[in-house]
């Protein structure tokens, strides 16, 4: 029997008032795969992530995690082995960097010295010095905050990691650093990764497979290596950033 996908959505619908964001979206992410969902601003990429996590309840359709239907609610067992890098890093302002990274460990009553050591180890993995551990989020640059967010996402060696617009707001060099870190970490850990972005550099660095979201459904999906050869004119317009073509922003 084939192994159930790590993540599966079927006929997912979500509307906010009169705006129908997701319109019967079907998607599968296999275990250990790195899938990148691309699409224009406002195409529903973030809503898709939130529906999978149970942060938004779909109007119709179903989300399966590890082969089990979620009923639209967050699943504690899934979240226990899950990590996420948020678009703005979403670090907790009132906690120091190491407390942010070790948040889950501290919650699990791990001794603070041990949790701090693990946090410093993960900070080193994302290229940050131990001195950063005692800073607060307000003292970090955008790139540093993203790296701390990445360290927090991988602090407990999760089996599934989500990356929400990982390079938004970063300069090209820092974006390259973050893309490289994500690629290396996903390869090292064998984690299932789901990334949403409209940054083609991220797509090429991170993706095993790419899915293009448009008008609330998956318009195209295929291997990352075959992206440039995709025949869909909308995909071609998007990946080359051409202003003229079938693609119109909502």
């Amino acid at each position: 029997m084939a192994e159930a996908p790590a993540i599966r959505t079927h006929a997912l619908h979500k509307a906010f008032g009169a705006t129908r964001v997701l319109r019967g979206l079907d998607l599968e992410v296999a275990r250990g795969e790195s899938l990148v969902v691309i699409g224009g601003s406002g195409s529903g990429k973030s809503v898709l992530l939130k529906c999978i996590l149970g942060l938004e309840i779909p109007d119709a359709g179903e989300v399966w995690l590890d082969g089990q239907p979620t009923g639209g609610r967050p699943r504690p067992a899934f979240l226990e082995r899950f990590g996420m890098l948020f678009q703005g890093a979403a670090l907790f302002d009132s906690l120091s960097v190491w407390q942010n990274v070790a948040f889950r460990l501290l919650r699990d009553r791990r001794p603070p010295a041990q949790a701090r050591a693990r946090a410093i180890e993960k900070l080193a993995r994302v290229g940050l010095a131990p001195e950063v551990a005692d800073l607060f989020p307000a003292q970090l640059s955008g790139g540093m905050a993203k790296r701390v967010g990445l360290a927090r996402a991988i602090a407990t060696d999760p089996a599934v990691i989500f990356f929400d617009e990982p390079t938004t707001g970063l300069d090209p060099i820092m974006a390259g650093v973050i893309n490289g870190l994500i690629r290396d970490i996903v390869a090292e850990t064998g984690a299932t990764a789901l990334t949403i972005t409209h940054d083609m550099a991220s797509v090429r660095a991170i993706a095993d497979r790419v899915a293009m979201l448009h008008a609330g459904t998956i318009r195209w999906t295929g291997r990352a290596a075959g992206l440039d050869d995709a025949e869909d004119p909308m995909v071609q317009q998007f990946i080359h950033g051409r202003p003229e073509g079938p693609f119109t922003q909502p």
Partner: peptide, 17 residues
């Protein structure tokens, strides 16, 4: 409110809290 608009509350949920 600031935690909500900066997704810190979503982050809490993803950290099983």
């Amino acid at each position: 409110g600031t935690m909500k608009v900066t997704q810190q509350i979503d982050a809490l949920v993803t950290l099983s809290t």
